[in-house]
Amino acid sequence: MRLLVTRPDEDAGGTIAALEAMGHEAIASPLLTIHPIADAEIPDEKWQAILITSANGARAAGAHPDFETIKFIPVFTVGTASAEAAREAGFASVTTAQGNVETLTALVVSRLDPSAGPLLHIAGSVIAGDLKGGLEQHGFQVERVTLYEAKVAGHLPEAACEALMSGAVDGVLFYSPRTAATFAALVKSAGLGAALKPVMAYCLSQPVAEALDGLPFRDVRVSEEPGQGALLSLIGN
């Protein structure tokens, strides 16, 4: 199969390699670009733990000038990809919730004590879910620091346009509601909606699928779990 991968370049490499190992052809079509905010200030606090909800957040933390001051603080991540990125960035202690914001909230509540100190949430400029609000309901103090910005593309990547217009796309992979919504807007703007009729959409979660509402995909399939392994299992060999 020929599949569009809509992830940012920083995240797409592993996905493309996995698809090629399965015998598919992957077409890189990033709809977001990641821009670290190097001058963002990380407050000097006695943090109980750090919460990371994306691989890009982990990478941005690792590249931050103050990383050495936080690298030994325990880290809790939303999923496997963010956990791997946190370890690669140099964090010494990483635990993953292997799910979404809700499972991360539950993990933190079960492992940490609100009275033991504040939590640092490393995030991007656009946030999915309300991790801070959910934890504050359980008495935790959470401070969010924005270390990167994810900017949406102004038009569909040329490779994606050419593949859709020529009928050379069998499916599109979507990992976030924002990416899916961006794809929907750009496809409509380019007048390529009809090109999606023979195309499958593979979505990481139900909110991702809902962001594609109105597009005439042949079918929209949703992963049973919010992880890349489960998403790729929808495609098969």
Rank of each mutant, 00 (worst) to 15 (best):
D66V: 10
P65I: 11
V75I: 13
T77S: 06
T95Y: 09
A85T: 06
V94H: 03
L104C: 03
A83C: 05
P74K: 12
E102G: 09
T69R: 15
L131H: 04
R111A: 11
N56T: 07
G133M: 05
L131W: 00
K46E: 14
A92V: 11
E45Q: 15
A92N: 12
E102I: 10
L51T: 01
F76G: 03
P65K: 15
E88I: 11
E102W: 00
Q48A: 08
E88D: 14
F67K: 08
A58T: 07
F76A: 04
F91S: 03
T103P: 00
A85C: 09
P43Y: 07
Q48S: 11
F67H: 08
V109T: 13
S82N: 03
V101W: 05
A123S: 15
L112V: 06
S125P: 01
R111P: 02
P43D: 06
A81V: 10
L104E: 00
Q98H: 13
A83W: 03
S54V: 02
F91L: 11
I50F: 08
I52Q: 02
A92F: 12
A89I: 09
T80S: 12
W47G: 07
A55F: 03
G90E: 13
A89S: 15
G117K: 00
G124Q: 04
E102C: 03
K71V: 06
A123Y: 03
P118A: 11
E68D: 14
A55K: 03
T95K: 08
P65F: 11
K132V: 01
Q98M: 12
